[in-house]
Design a protein around this nucleic acid. Structure first.
Lengths: 244, 244
DNA sequence: ATCCTTAGTTGAGGCAGATCAATGTTGAAG
DNA sequence: CTTCAACATTGATCTGCCTCAACTAAGGAT
Protein backbone atom coordinates (compact mmCIF):
# COMPACT_ATOMS: atom_id res chain seq x y z
CA UNK A 1 0.00 0.00 0.00
CA UNK A 2 1.07 3.57 -0.64
CA UNK A 3 2.13 5.77 2.28
CA UNK A 4 -0.79 7.67 3.80
CA UNK A 5 0.92 11.08 3.55
CA UNK A 6 1.04 10.92 -0.22
CA UNK A 7 -1.50 13.27 -1.80
CA UNK A 8 -4.55 11.88 -3.58
CA UNK A 9 -3.13 13.30 -6.82
CA UNK A 10 0.20 11.51 -6.45
CA UNK A 11 -1.59 8.36 -5.38
CA UNK A 12 -3.80 8.39 -8.47
CA UNK A 13 -0.95 9.07 -10.90
CA UNK A 14 1.17 6.48 -9.12
CA UNK A 15 -1.47 3.88 -9.84
CA UNK A 16 -0.74 4.37 -13.51
CA UNK A 17 2.91 5.32 -13.78
CA UNK A 18 5.36 4.17 -11.09
CA UNK A 19 6.95 7.43 -9.92
CA UNK A 20 10.41 7.96 -8.40
CA UNK A 21 10.96 10.10 -5.30
CA UNK A 22 12.36 12.86 -7.50
CA UNK A 23 9.34 12.77 -9.77
CA UNK A 24 7.09 12.86 -6.75
CA UNK A 25 8.78 16.00 -5.44
CA UNK A 26 8.50 17.65 -8.87
CA UNK A 27 4.82 16.79 -8.74
CA UNK A 28 4.63 18.41 -5.30
CA UNK A 29 6.19 21.63 -6.59
CA UNK A 30 3.64 21.71 -9.41
CA UNK A 31 0.89 22.26 -6.88
CA UNK A 32 0.91 25.89 -5.80
CA UNK A 33 -0.91 27.58 -2.94
CA UNK A 34 -3.98 25.94 -1.57
CA UNK A 35 -7.39 27.62 -1.63
CA UNK A 36 -10.65 26.82 0.09
CA UNK A 37 -14.13 27.15 -1.44
CA UNK A 38 -17.53 27.00 0.23
CA UNK A 39 -20.15 24.49 -0.90
CA UNK A 40 -22.71 25.71 -3.39
CA UNK A 41 -20.84 28.78 -4.70
CA UNK A 42 -19.46 28.34 -8.22
CA UNK A 43 -15.67 28.38 -8.50
CA UNK A 44 -15.84 28.80 -12.27
CA UNK A 45 -18.47 30.19 -14.64
CA UNK A 46 -19.10 29.52 -18.32
CA UNK A 47 -17.41 32.19 -20.41
CA UNK A 48 -14.65 33.12 -17.94
CA UNK A 49 -11.23 33.40 -19.59
CA UNK A 50 -7.71 32.78 -18.34
CA UNK A 51 -8.68 31.01 -15.15
CA UNK A 52 -6.48 28.80 -13.03
CA UNK A 53 -6.54 25.05 -13.01
CA UNK A 54 -6.55 23.21 -9.69
CA UNK A 55 -5.98 19.83 -8.20
CA UNK A 56 -8.68 18.90 -5.73
CA UNK A 57 -7.23 18.04 -2.30
CA UNK A 58 -10.35 17.41 -0.25
CA UNK A 59 -14.11 17.50 -0.73
CA UNK A 60 -16.24 16.91 -3.82
CA UNK A 61 -17.02 19.25 -6.71
CA UNK A 62 -19.03 18.94 -9.90
CA UNK A 63 -18.77 20.40 -13.40
CA UNK A 64 -22.01 21.19 -15.17
CA UNK A 65 -23.59 23.10 -18.02
CA UNK A 66 -26.79 25.13 -17.95
CA UNK A 67 -29.23 25.37 -20.84
CA UNK A 68 -30.87 28.74 -21.63
CA UNK A 69 -34.18 26.97 -21.13
CA UNK A 70 -33.29 26.23 -17.54
CA UNK A 71 -32.17 22.61 -17.47
CA UNK A 72 -28.84 21.61 -16.03
CA UNK A 73 -26.61 18.67 -16.87
CA UNK A 74 -23.83 17.63 -14.54
CA UNK A 75 -20.97 16.37 -16.69
CA UNK A 76 -18.82 14.85 -13.98
CA UNK A 77 -18.06 14.95 -10.28
CA UNK A 78 -14.53 15.56 -9.06
CA UNK A 79 -13.08 13.84 -6.03
CA UNK A 80 -9.70 14.34 -4.31
CA UNK A 81 -6.82 13.89 -6.75
CA UNK A 82 -8.82 15.08 -9.76
CA UNK A 83 -8.09 18.10 -11.96
CA UNK A 84 -10.47 21.05 -11.80
CA UNK A 85 -10.85 23.22 -14.87
CA UNK A 86 -7.89 21.82 -16.79
CA UNK A 87 -9.78 21.82 -20.06
CA UNK A 88 -10.93 25.40 -19.53
CA UNK A 89 -7.32 26.47 -19.18
CA UNK A 90 -6.12 24.68 -22.32
CA UNK A 91 -9.20 25.89 -24.17
CA UNK A 92 -8.54 29.42 -22.87
CA UNK A 93 -12.24 29.91 -22.08
CA UNK A 94 -14.49 28.02 -19.67
CA UNK A 95 -17.28 26.14 -21.41
CA UNK A 96 -18.76 24.86 -18.16
CA UNK A 97 -19.32 25.74 -14.51
CA UNK A 98 -17.69 24.17 -11.48
CA UNK A 99 -19.51 24.04 -8.17
CA UNK A 100 -18.15 22.64 -4.91
CA UNK A 101 -20.52 20.00 -3.58
CA UNK A 102 -18.97 20.18 -0.12
CA UNK A 103 -16.40 22.60 1.26
CA UNK A 104 -13.41 22.06 -0.94
CA UNK A 105 -9.65 22.54 -0.74
CA UNK A 106 -7.77 22.82 -4.01
CA UNK A 107 -4.23 23.76 -4.98
CA UNK A 108 -3.52 25.98 -7.94
CA UNK A 109 -1.64 24.77 -10.98
CA UNK A 110 0.19 27.14 -13.32
CA UNK A 111 -0.11 26.18 -16.96
CA UNK A 112 3.44 27.34 -17.55
CA UNK A 113 4.66 24.83 -14.93
CA UNK A 114 2.52 22.16 -16.50
CA UNK A 115 3.92 22.77 -19.98
CA UNK A 116 7.47 22.87 -18.57
CA UNK A 117 6.93 19.35 -17.27
CA UNK A 118 6.32 18.09 -20.78
CA UNK A 119 9.86 18.85 -21.91
CA UNK A 120 11.70 18.10 -18.66
CA UNK A 121 10.14 15.02 -17.12
CA UNK A 122 8.47 12.98 -19.85
CA UNK A 123 7.32 10.27 -17.45
CA UNK A 124 5.37 12.82 -15.46
CA UNK A 125 4.01 14.21 -18.72
CA UNK A 126 2.78 10.73 -19.58
CA UNK A 127 1.12 10.51 -16.19
CA UNK A 128 -0.58 13.89 -16.57
CA UNK A 129 -1.77 13.09 -20.09
CA UNK A 130 -3.05 9.79 -18.78
CA UNK A 131 -5.04 11.61 -16.09
CA UNK A 132 -6.51 14.01 -18.63
CA UNK A 133 -7.37 11.13 -20.97
CA UNK A 134 -9.00 9.28 -18.10
CA UNK A 135 -11.17 12.30 -17.33
CA UNK A 136 -12.28 12.32 -20.94
CA UNK A 137 -12.88 8.56 -20.84
CA UNK A 138 -15.23 9.10 -17.90
CA UNK A 139 -17.24 11.68 -19.79
CA UNK A 140 -17.47 9.25 -22.69
CA UNK A 141 -18.68 6.53 -20.36
CA UNK A 142 -21.32 8.88 -18.96
CA UNK A 143 -22.45 9.60 -22.50
CA UNK A 144 -22.84 5.89 -23.16
CA UNK A 145 -24.69 5.49 -19.87
CA UNK A 146 -27.20 8.22 -20.61
CA UNK A 147 -27.59 7.23 -24.24
CA UNK A 148 -27.98 3.48 -23.93
CA UNK A 149 -28.64 2.33 -20.36
CA UNK A 150 -31.92 2.54 -18.48
CA UNK A 151 -32.33 4.38 -15.20
CA UNK A 152 -31.51 1.39 -13.00
CA UNK A 153 -28.36 0.34 -14.85
CA UNK A 154 -27.27 3.95 -15.19
CA UNK A 155 -27.58 4.69 -11.49
CA UNK A 156 -25.80 1.49 -10.52
CA UNK A 157 -23.02 2.22 -13.01
CA UNK A 158 -22.49 5.74 -11.71
CA UNK A 159 -22.34 4.65 -8.08
CA UNK A 160 -19.97 1.82 -8.94
CA UNK A 161 -17.74 4.27 -10.78
CA UNK A 162 -17.50 6.44 -7.67
CA UNK A 163 -16.60 3.39 -5.66
CA UNK A 164 -13.72 2.50 -7.96
CA UNK A 165 -12.46 6.08 -8.20
CA UNK A 166 -12.57 6.63 -4.44
CA UNK A 167 -10.87 3.33 -3.72
CA UNK A 168 -7.98 4.40 -5.94
CA UNK A 169 -7.31 7.42 -3.72
CA UNK A 170 -7.97 5.61 -0.46
CA UNK A 171 -11.42 7.01 0.26
CA UNK A 172 -13.55 3.92 -0.24
CA UNK A 173 -13.60 0.13 -0.08
CA UNK A 174 -15.57 -2.60 -1.80
CA UNK A 175 -17.97 -2.27 1.13
CA UNK A 176 -18.93 1.30 0.28
CA UNK A 177 -18.02 4.97 0.67
CA UNK A 178 -19.21 8.33 2.03
CA UNK A 179 -21.16 10.21 -0.60
CA UNK A 180 -22.24 13.83 -0.05
CA UNK A 181 -24.54 13.98 -3.08
CA UNK A 182 -28.24 14.76 -2.85
CA UNK A 183 -30.71 12.87 -4.99
CA UNK A 184 -31.25 16.12 -6.92
CA UNK A 185 -27.58 16.29 -7.93
CA UNK A 186 -27.60 12.65 -8.87
CA UNK A 187 -30.65 13.36 -11.03
CA UNK A 188 -28.88 16.23 -12.83
CA UNK A 189 -25.94 13.95 -13.52
CA UNK A 190 -27.97 10.96 -14.67
CA UNK A 191 -30.35 12.90 -16.91
CA UNK A 192 -33.30 11.79 -14.75
CA UNK A 193 -35.83 13.53 -12.54
CA UNK A 194 -35.17 13.60 -8.81
CA UNK A 195 -38.42 11.71 -8.24
CA UNK A 196 -37.31 8.88 -10.46
CA UNK A 197 -33.86 8.72 -8.87
CA UNK A 198 -35.62 8.22 -5.56
CA UNK A 199 -37.63 5.31 -6.94
CA UNK A 200 -34.56 3.75 -8.54
CA UNK A 201 -32.59 3.97 -5.29
CA UNK A 202 -35.48 2.31 -3.48
CA UNK A 203 -35.52 -0.48 -6.05
CA UNK A 204 -31.76 -1.00 -5.73
CA UNK A 205 -32.19 -1.20 -1.95
CA UNK A 206 -35.19 -3.53 -2.08
CA UNK A 207 -33.38 -5.85 -4.47
CA UNK A 208 -30.49 -6.05 -2.00
CA UNK A 209 -27.99 -4.45 -4.36
CA UNK A 210 -26.96 -1.21 -2.66
CA UNK A 211 -28.09 1.23 0.01
CA UNK A 212 -27.83 4.97 -0.52
CA UNK A 213 -28.70 6.61 2.79
CA UNK A 214 -27.48 9.30 5.19
CA UNK A 215 -24.59 10.32 2.99
CA UNK A 216 -23.28 6.80 2.65
CA UNK A 217 -23.31 4.29 -0.19
CA UNK A 218 -23.15 0.67 0.93
CA UNK A 219 -22.68 -2.13 -1.58
CA UNK A 220 -24.97 -4.94 -0.44
CA UNK A 221 -24.27 -7.13 -3.45
CA UNK A 222 -21.23 -5.90 -5.34
CA UNK A 223 -21.16 -8.64 -7.97
CA UNK A 224 -24.87 -8.31 -8.61
CA UNK A 225 -24.40 -4.59 -9.24
CA UNK A 226 -21.48 -5.14 -11.60
CA UNK A 227 -23.57 -7.60 -13.59
CA UNK A 228 -26.61 -5.34 -13.67
CA UNK A 229 -24.66 -2.26 -14.76
CA UNK A 230 -22.29 -4.15 -17.08
CA UNK A 231 -19.56 -2.30 -15.21
CA UNK A 232 -16.01 -2.67 -16.48
CA UNK A 233 -13.56 -0.57 -14.52
CA UNK A 234 -10.81 -0.87 -17.13
CA UNK A 235 -11.30 2.75 -18.18
CA UNK A 236 -10.51 3.91 -14.64
CA UNK A 237 -7.37 2.12 -13.50
CA UNK A 238 -5.98 -0.52 -15.88
CA UNK A 239 -5.42 -2.82 -12.91
CA UNK A 240 -2.12 -1.21 -11.95
CA UNK A 241 0.81 0.69 -13.50
CA UNK A 242 1.30 0.25 -17.23
CA UNK A 243 4.74 1.86 -17.17
CA UNK A 244 7.08 0.36 -14.59
CA UNK B 1 -9.92 33.15 -46.92
CA UNK B 2 -7.25 30.54 -46.42
CA UNK B 3 -5.51 29.05 -49.46
CA UNK B 4 -7.28 26.01 -50.80
CA UNK B 5 -4.17 23.78 -50.72
CA UNK B 6 -3.90 24.07 -46.97
CA UNK B 7 -4.91 20.83 -45.26
CA UNK B 8 -8.14 20.68 -43.27
CA UNK B 9 -6.02 20.12 -40.15
CA UNK B 10 -3.95 23.29 -40.72
CA UNK B 11 -7.08 25.19 -41.61
CA UNK B 12 -8.81 24.18 -38.39
CA UNK B 13 -5.83 24.96 -36.15
CA UNK B 14 -5.31 28.21 -38.04
CA UNK B 15 -8.83 29.26 -37.09
CA UNK B 16 -7.70 29.24 -33.48
CA UNK B 17 -4.00 30.13 -33.49
CA UNK B 18 -2.59 32.24 -36.32
CA UNK B 19 0.28 30.08 -37.64
CA UNK B 20 3.44 31.22 -39.40
CA UNK B 21 4.73 29.53 -42.56
CA UNK B 22 7.42 27.82 -40.52
CA UNK B 23 4.87 26.52 -38.03
CA UNK B 24 2.73 25.32 -40.89
CA UNK B 25 5.60 23.35 -42.38
CA UNK B 26 6.38 21.83 -38.96
CA UNK B 27 2.75 20.84 -38.85
CA UNK B 28 3.09 19.27 -42.27
CA UNK B 29 6.09 17.17 -41.16
CA UNK B 30 4.07 15.95 -38.17
CA UNK B 31 1.74 14.12 -40.52
CA UNK B 32 3.39 10.92 -41.64
CA UNK B 33 2.42 8.51 -44.39
CA UNK B 34 -1.15 8.48 -45.53
CA UNK B 35 -3.34 5.38 -45.26
CA UNK B 36 -6.71 4.53 -46.75
CA UNK B 37 -9.51 2.63 -45.01
CA UNK B 38 -12.70 1.14 -46.45
CA UNK B 39 -16.09 2.14 -45.09
CA UNK B 40 -17.61 -0.10 -42.44
CA UNK B 41 -14.44 -1.90 -41.34
CA UNK B 42 -13.19 -0.80 -37.92
CA UNK B 43 -9.81 0.93 -37.88
CA UNK B 44 -9.54 0.54 -34.11
CA UNK B 45 -11.03 -1.90 -31.61
CA UNK B 46 -11.69 -1.54 -27.88
CA UNK B 47 -8.77 -3.03 -25.96
CA UNK B 48 -6.09 -2.64 -28.63
CA UNK B 49 -2.83 -1.26 -27.25
CA UNK B 50 -0.10 0.91 -28.73
CA UNK B 51 -1.97 2.00 -31.80
CA UNK B 52 -1.22 4.96 -34.01
CA UNK B 53 -3.05 8.24 -33.94
CA UNK B 54 -4.15 9.81 -37.22
CA UNK B 55 -5.33 13.05 -38.68
CA UNK B 56 -8.32 12.56 -40.95
CA UNK B 57 -7.68 13.93 -44.45
CA UNK B 58 -10.85 12.98 -46.27
CA UNK B 59 -14.08 11.15 -45.55
CA UNK B 60 -16.04 10.72 -42.32
CA UNK B 61 -15.43 8.34 -39.41
CA UNK B 62 -17.13 7.72 -36.09
CA UNK B 63 -15.98 6.60 -32.66
CA UNK B 64 -18.35 4.41 -30.68
CA UNK B 65 -18.66 2.03 -27.76
CA UNK B 66 -20.51 -1.26 -27.65
CA UNK B 67 -22.37 -2.57 -24.62
CA UNK B 68 -22.18 -6.29 -23.78
CA UNK B 69 -25.97 -6.30 -24.04
CA UNK B 70 -25.76 -5.31 -27.67
CA UNK B 71 -26.47 -1.57 -27.76
CA UNK B 72 -24.10 0.85 -29.36
CA UNK B 73 -23.49 4.51 -28.64
CA UNK B 74 -21.67 6.69 -31.13
CA UNK B 75 -19.61 9.18 -29.15
CA UNK B 76 -18.60 11.47 -31.99
CA UNK B 77 -18.13 11.69 -35.72
CA UNK B 78 -14.81 12.80 -37.18
CA UNK B 79 -14.54 14.95 -40.27
CA UNK B 80 -11.45 16.08 -42.22
CA UNK B 81 -8.97 17.86 -39.97
CA UNK B 82 -9.96 15.92 -36.85
CA UNK B 83 -7.76 13.63 -34.78
CA UNK B 84 -8.47 9.91 -34.82
CA UNK B 85 -7.58 7.85 -31.77
CA UNK B 86 -5.50 10.51 -30.02
CA UNK B 87 -6.95 9.66 -26.62
CA UNK B 88 -6.32 5.96 -27.15
CA UNK B 89 -2.66 6.71 -27.77
CA UNK B 90 -2.25 8.89 -24.67
CA UNK B 91 -4.27 6.39 -22.66
CA UNK B 92 -2.12 3.56 -24.09
CA UNK B 93 -5.19 1.40 -24.63
CA UNK B 94 -8.23 1.97 -26.82
CA UNK B 95 -11.45 2.35 -24.86
CA UNK B 96 -13.58 2.75 -27.98
CA UNK B 97 -13.89 1.65 -31.59
CA UNK B 98 -13.39 3.74 -34.70
CA UNK B 99 -15.27 2.95 -37.88
CA UNK B 100 -14.93 4.77 -41.19
CA UNK B 101 -18.37 5.97 -42.32
CA UNK B 102 -17.14 6.48 -45.88
CA UNK B 103 -13.84 5.54 -47.47
CA UNK B 104 -11.30 7.44 -45.46
CA UNK B 105 -7.79 8.79 -45.92
CA UNK B 106 -5.80 9.49 -42.79
CA UNK B 107 -2.16 10.35 -42.08
CA UNK B 108 -0.28 8.77 -39.22
CA UNK B 109 1.00 10.77 -36.28
CA UNK B 110 3.88 9.58 -34.12
CA UNK B 111 3.41 10.35 -30.45
CA UNK B 112 7.13 11.03 -30.14
CA UNK B 113 6.82 13.76 -32.80
CA UNK B 114 3.79 15.14 -31.01
CA UNK B 115 5.57 15.33 -27.67
CA UNK B 116 8.63 16.90 -29.32
CA UNK B 117 6.40 19.73 -30.51
CA UNK B 118 5.53 20.62 -26.94
CA UNK B 119 9.09 21.63 -26.11
CA UNK B 120 10.09 23.09 -29.47
CA UNK B 121 7.15 25.05 -30.82
CA UNK B 122 4.90 26.11 -27.95
CA UNK B 123 2.43 27.90 -30.19
CA UNK B 124 1.80 24.70 -32.10
CA UNK B 125 1.48 22.91 -28.78
CA UNK B 126 -1.19 25.40 -27.77
CA UNK B 127 -2.98 24.74 -31.03
CA UNK B 128 -2.84 20.96 -30.60
CA UNK B 129 -4.02 21.16 -26.98
CA UNK B 130 -6.81 23.44 -28.15
CA UNK B 131 -7.86 20.87 -30.74
CA UNK B 132 -7.85 18.09 -28.14
CA UNK B 133 -9.82 20.25 -25.70
CA UNK B 134 -12.31 21.07 -28.41
CA UNK B 135 -12.84 17.36 -29.08
CA UNK B 136 -13.60 16.90 -25.41
CA UNK B 137 -15.89 19.94 -25.42
CA UNK B 138 -17.88 18.31 -28.20
CA UNK B 139 -18.33 15.12 -26.21
CA UNK B 140 -19.49 17.21 -23.26
CA UNK B 141 -21.98 19.02 -25.48
CA UNK B 142 -23.29 15.66 -26.74
CA UNK B 143 -23.72 14.56 -23.15
CA UNK B 144 -25.78 17.67 -22.40
CA UNK B 145 -27.80 17.10 -25.57
CA UNK B 146 -28.69 13.52 -24.72
CA UNK B 147 -29.27 14.27 -21.06
CA UNK B 148 -31.38 17.40 -21.27
CA UNK B 149 -32.73 18.04 -24.77
CA UNK B 150 -35.67 16.31 -26.43
CA UNK B 151 -35.37 14.44 -29.71
CA UNK B 152 -36.18 17.42 -31.93
CA UNK B 153 -33.77 19.85 -30.28
CA UNK B 154 -31.12 17.19 -30.04
CA UNK B 155 -31.26 16.31 -33.73
CA UNK B 156 -31.27 19.97 -34.76
CA UNK B 157 -28.31 20.67 -32.48
CA UNK B 158 -26.28 17.78 -33.85
CA UNK B 159 -26.89 18.76 -37.48
CA UNK B 160 -26.06 22.39 -36.73
CA UNK B 161 -22.84 21.29 -35.08
CA UNK B 162 -21.80 19.42 -38.22
CA UNK B 163 -22.58 22.52 -40.24
CA UNK B 164 -20.31 24.70 -38.11
CA UNK B 165 -17.51 22.13 -38.03
CA UNK B 166 -17.60 21.53 -41.77
CA UNK B 167 -17.70 25.23 -42.57
CA UNK B 168 -14.52 25.68 -40.53
CA UNK B 169 -12.64 23.29 -42.86
CA UNK B 170 -14.29 24.55 -46.03
CA UNK B 171 -16.70 21.65 -46.55
CA UNK B 172 -20.00 23.38 -45.88
CA UNK B 173 -21.82 26.70 -45.96
CA UNK B 174 -24.73 28.22 -44.07
CA UNK B 175 -26.88 26.75 -46.85
CA UNK B 176 -25.99 23.16 -46.01
CA UNK B 177 -23.50 20.34 -46.51
CA UNK B 178 -23.04 16.80 -47.82
CA UNK B 179 -23.71 14.27 -45.09
CA UNK B 180 -23.00 10.56 -45.61
CA UNK B 181 -24.76 9.39 -42.46
CA UNK B 182 -27.66 6.95 -42.47
CA UNK B 183 -30.58 7.50 -40.13
CA UNK B 184 -29.39 4.42 -38.22
CA UNK B 185 -26.04 6.01 -37.45
CA UNK B 186 -27.71 9.23 -36.45
CA UNK B 187 -29.92 7.21 -34.11
CA UNK B 188 -26.91 5.54 -32.49
CA UNK B 189 -25.34 8.95 -31.94
CA UNK B 190 -28.47 10.66 -30.63
CA UNK B 191 -29.50 7.86 -28.27
CA UNK B 192 -32.76 7.41 -30.20
CA UNK B 193 -34.32 4.66 -32.25
CA UNK B 194 -33.94 4.84 -36.03
CA UNK B 195 -37.70 4.97 -36.37
CA UNK B 196 -37.94 8.02 -34.19
CA UNK B 197 -35.07 9.75 -35.99
CA UNK B 198 -37.04 9.33 -39.18
CA UNK B 199 -40.09 10.97 -37.64
CA UNK B 200 -38.04 13.82 -36.21
CA UNK B 201 -36.39 14.49 -39.58
CA UNK B 202 -39.82 14.56 -41.17
CA UNK B 203 -41.02 17.07 -38.58
CA UNK B 204 -37.98 19.29 -39.14
CA UNK B 205 -38.68 19.19 -42.88
CA UNK B 206 -42.42 19.86 -42.53
CA UNK B 207 -41.77 22.79 -40.23
CA UNK B 208 -39.47 24.28 -42.86
CA UNK B 209 -36.35 24.06 -40.69
CA UNK B 210 -34.07 21.66 -42.50
CA UNK B 211 -34.06 18.93 -45.13
CA UNK B 212 -32.03 15.75 -44.66
CA UNK B 213 -32.26 13.84 -47.92
CA UNK B 214 -30.09 12.02 -50.45
CA UNK B 215 -26.90 12.48 -48.46
CA UNK B 216 -27.37 16.22 -48.16
CA UNK B 217 -28.40 18.48 -45.29
CA UNK B 218 -30.05 21.74 -46.35
CA UNK B 219 -30.78 24.47 -43.85
CA UNK B 220 -34.20 25.86 -44.80
CA UNK B 221 -34.41 28.18 -41.80
CA UNK B 222 -31.05 28.54 -40.13
CA UNK B 223 -32.09 31.06 -37.46
CA UNK B 224 -35.16 29.03 -36.58
CA UNK B 225 -32.96 25.98 -36.06
CA UNK B 226 -30.49 27.86 -33.88
CA UNK B 227 -33.36 29.09 -31.71
CA UNK B 228 -34.97 25.67 -31.47
CA UNK B 229 -31.73 23.90 -30.55
CA UNK B 230 -30.37 26.73 -28.38
CA UNK B 231 -27.24 26.30 -30.43
CA UNK B 232 -24.19 28.33 -29.38
CA UNK B 233 -21.19 27.57 -31.55
CA UNK B 234 -18.72 29.19 -29.13
CA UNK B 235 -17.39 25.78 -28.11
CA UNK B 236 -16.39 25.06 -31.71
CA UNK B 237 -14.53 28.09 -33.02
CA UNK B 238 -14.45 31.10 -30.67
CA UNK B 239 -15.29 33.37 -33.63
CA UNK B 240 -11.71 33.54 -34.85
CA UNK B 241 -8.13 33.22 -33.59
CA UNK B 242 -7.66 33.89 -29.90
CA UNK B 243 -3.88 34.12 -30.24
CA UNK B 244 -2.72 36.47 -32.98
C1' DA C 1 -40.87 26.53 20.80
C1' DT C 2 -42.10 27.78 16.05
C1' DC C 3 -41.16 28.74 11.48
C1' DC C 4 -39.04 27.93 7.18
C1' DT C 5 -36.22 25.71 3.99
C1' DT C 6 -34.19 21.72 1.90
C1' DA C 7 -34.26 16.79 1.08
C1' DG C 8 -36.62 12.72 0.79
C1' DT C 9 -40.86 9.80 -0.17
C1' DT C 10 -45.00 8.16 -2.40
C1' DG C 11 -49.23 8.25 -5.55
C1' DA C 12 -51.72 9.36 -9.97
C1' DG C 13 -51.85 10.46 -14.61
C1' DG C 14 -49.73 11.72 -19.02
C1' DC C 15 -46.55 11.66 -22.88
C1' DA C 16 -42.20 11.19 -25.52
C1' DG C 17 -40.09 7.90 -27.50
C1' DA C 18 -39.42 2.60 -27.81
C1' DT C 19 -40.84 -1.54 -30.03
C1' DC C 20 -43.13 -4.37 -33.34
C1' DA C 21 -44.66 -4.84 -37.88
C1' DA C 22 -45.39 -3.89 -42.66
C1' DT C 23 -44.26 -1.55 -47.04
C1' DG C 24 -41.75 1.39 -50.36
C1' DT C 25 -37.26 2.54 -52.63
C1' DT C 26 -32.83 2.30 -54.19
C1' DG C 27 -28.62 0.30 -55.74
C1' DA C 28 -25.45 -3.45 -56.16
C1' DA C 29 -24.72 -8.30 -57.44
C1' DG C 30 -25.67 -12.13 -60.20
C1' DC D 1 -33.87 -8.41 -65.80
C1' DT D 2 -34.20 -10.29 -61.29
C1' DT D 3 -32.83 -10.72 -56.63
C1' DC D 4 -31.34 -9.26 -52.52
C1' DA D 5 -29.86 -6.17 -48.91
C1' DA D 6 -29.77 -1.86 -46.83
C1' DC D 7 -32.14 2.15 -45.96
C1' DA D 8 -36.31 4.92 -45.51
C1' DT D 9 -41.12 5.48 -44.26
C1' DT D 10 -45.41 4.95 -41.82
C1' DG D 11 -48.95 2.94 -38.46
C1' DA D 12 -50.19 0.78 -34.00
C1' DT D 13 -49.24 -0.20 -29.48
C1' DC D 14 -46.75 -0.10 -25.25
C1' DT D 15 -43.86 1.65 -21.41
C1' DG D 16 -40.23 4.10 -18.87
C1' DC D 17 -39.84 8.06 -17.12
C1' DC D 18 -41.74 12.84 -16.39
C1' DT D 19 -44.80 16.06 -14.19
C1' DC D 20 -47.78 17.49 -10.77
C1' DA D 21 -49.04 17.17 -6.17
C1' DA D 22 -49.12 16.05 -1.44
C1' DC D 23 -46.90 14.76 2.64
C1' DT D 24 -42.91 13.62 6.04
C1' DA D 25 -38.46 14.48 8.21
C1' DA D 26 -34.57 17.09 9.63
C1' DG D 27 -32.07 21.14 10.56
C1' DG D 28 -31.22 26.28 11.16
C1' DA D 29 -32.67 30.62 12.20
C1' DT D 30 -35.15 33.79 15.06
Amino acid sequence: MLPAHRSAFARKLGAFVALSDEELSTLGRLQGRSKSFAAGHDMLHQGQVDQHAYVLESGWACSYKLLPSGGRQIVDFQIPGDFLGLRSVLFRIADHNIEPVTRVKASEILVSDLLAIFSKTPRLATAVLWAASRDEAMVVEHLVCIGRRNALERTAHYLLEFGARLKLVGLGTTAGYDCPLSQYMLADALGLSAVHVNRVLRQLREEGLLTFQNGRVTFDNFDGLVTLAEFDKAYLDHDGPLLK
